[in-house]
């Protein structure tokens, strides 16, 4: 059941790609894991980085939200600055999730998060403070992180969670 819907959504994303996104399925072709490469718009601090995102769709999708993790390090208030790359996105929280939400909307929300960080709902308190109070330092560090981690094509883990 969920596979059907996911296949439908994947077909849609493949046929009409969303700007800045490149979506593939992992080698094992499970539709429940999407490998997403996001290239933020040129206006953002994170340009020209390419960020790998693993989107995991639970078996009871769409009644449970997808799980999103950055595989590329990002210096961002709402993304954990570690190898886990957890993301805080309001629409993905269990209490907010709507089964009628498309994955495309989730991806767009992710792009918006890079365009406009939400320091008031941070995962990285320190980065959020820096973003609010010392934007220049934050931008410099974010740029540095892009240069260090995000210029190569992202490497997705072989067996994505």
């Amino acid at each position: 059941m969920s596979t059907k819907r996911i296949s439908k959504e994947f077909a849609e994303v493949s046929q009409t790609p969303i700007e800045g996104f490149f979506v593939t399925l992992p080698p094992n072709n499970s539709v429940h894991t999407w490998h997403v490469t996001l290239q933020p718009p040129a206006s953002t601090t994170f340009y020209p980085g390419r960020f790998g995102i693993v989107l995991t769709l639970p078996t009871d999708y769409p009644f449970k939200p997808p799980v999103v993790k950055f595989v590329t390090r990002v210096y961002h208030p709402n993304i954990t600055n570690d190898s886990l790359g957890n993301v805080c996105l309001a629409i993905l929280k269990a209490e907010n999730w709507k089964p009628s939400t498309k994955i495309v909307s989730v991806l767009e929300a992710l792009r918006n998060l890079l365009v406009e960080p939400q320091p008031d709902d941070p995962l990285e308190e320190r980065i959020a403070d820096e973003y609010r109070n010392d934007r220049e330092t934050w931008e410099a560090k974010a740029k540095a992180a892009v240069t260090k981690y995000a210029l190569e094509d992202p490497i997705f883990p072989a067996s994505a969670s």
Binding site: M1, K4, R5, K8, E9, P62, P99, S100, K102
Partner: peptide, 8 residues
Amino acid sequence: RYEYHEDF
């Protein structure tokens, strides 16, 4: 304005 309502 619901998407994928056919599945439900």
